[in-house]
């Protein structure tokens, strides 16, 4: 899910001389024995690089994800909903911070990672480039987007890299409330007035396909997948996760009385799974490239915050230095 952009620039970098066959084999043996790799352990340069990209994209997604939901805090329709949404958005900031912290153990600084996000060089999950235009979008995001994220994150709790796995355990504990609050919003809407039901149906139609795209293209088209699976950075294939998500979510939509925006959706008795329609991968690649409804806005917002906050960060540094000088004197 957080490796959506990894296959794009197919640059073959020269093999790292430190990656000798003996070391690679010893490392793979540790992975196969389900040992956890910790920050000071030797690791192949490819393992380190892939993890840095995947984890930083994950962290960026949490941070950018605060924006579409933050959009509705001031207009939440009840005090309880306002409180819940604030708690959720706070959690997301927290998740971003846990994952940045874990990424830094690989030898990069958060400043550099954030600079890559702000310059547009680093990717984040495409789903957050869609706008939240009604209150029902908040329910739908919790239900579908957090639902998809949970599906991806649970296997990552068993990822081979210790700090990432541990961050995922924390994240998963906090994430279950996120999905439940979203579904609860949908329940209220679907039991409500005609306008509310219409709001819910409209949101589902706009978010369903982007949610399916969150899992990324089929692994058959991805070079990185096989290596990531071997290194236990990725535990379950994109297609498998996506199928699981559909199987679990369609009954939830039926319970709400909502119509799925997919005419090809049908339950296959033989396989026990839902068959679903073709995803418009064109839209996916466009959004990933920067041509989604909110890409520009999301980055502009974070850049503005960063620029306008520069004097604050500098002041904090200056004060700390003054304090250190005073104490030394």
């Amino acid at each position: 899910m957080y490796t959506q952009g990894l296959d794009q620039k197919q640059k073959k970098s020269a093999a790292d001389p430190a990656d000798t066959p003996e070391r690679l084999a010893a490392f793979q043996a540790r992975i196969d024995a389900d040992e956890k790799i910790e920050p000071k352990d030797w690791m192949p340069s490819g393992y380190r690089k892939t993890l840095i990209r995947q984890m930083s994209q994950h962290a960026h997604s949490e941070i950018v994800g605060m924006l579409p939901e933050g959009n509705w805090i001031s207009r939440a329709p009840t005090l309880r909903r306002k409180a819940i949404l604030l708690a959720k958005v706070q959690d997301e900031a927290g998740h971003g911070l846990y994952i940045y912290g874990a990424t830094e153990t690989l030898g990069v600084s958060r400043d550099d990672l954030v600079a890559d996000l702000l310059s547009g060089k680093a990717k984040y999950s495409s789903i957050f480039n869609y706008p939240t235009v009604t209150w029902a979008d908040i329910g739908t995001i919790g239900w579908l987007v957090d639902g998809a994220a949970i599906m991806n994150q649970i296997p990552l709790c068993r990822c081979s890299y210790g700090p990432y796995a541990r961050a995922m355990v924390r994240v998963c504990k906090e994430e279950s409330f996120h999905q439940r609050q979203g579904y609860e919003i949908m329940l209220e809407l679907c039991r409500g007035t005609d306008e509310q039901k219409r709001m819910a149906q409209d949101a589902l139609e706009r978010w369903w396909w982007p949610a399916l795209m969150m899992f990324g293209p089929s692994d058959k088209t991805s070079e990185h997948s096989a290596q990531s699976m071997a290194w236990k950075i990725k535990r379950i294939s994109n297609d498998e996760l996506r199928q699981k998500f559909v199987d679990v979510t369609v009954p939830q939509a039926e319970y709400l009385g909502l119509r799925m925006p997919d005419e090809d959706l049908v339950f296959d008795q033989k396989t026990g799974h839902y068959r679903f329609g073709e995803i418009d991968w064109q839209e996916f690649w466009e959004v990933l490239k920067g041509n989604g409804k909110c890409n520009r806005e999301r980055l502009e917002t974070r850049n503005r915050a960063h620029d306008e906050g520069r004097w604050v960060r500098q002041a904090a540094r200056a004060y700390a230095e003054k304090q250190a000088a005073r104490q030394a004197a």
């Binding site: 605060m66 971003g96 503005r304 915050a305 306008e308 906050g309």
Partner: peptide, 8 residues
């Protein structure tokens, strides 16, 4: 939210 000088 979304506009702070630092995430923290």
């Amino acid at each position: 939210v979304g506009h702070g000088p630092e995430l923290e």
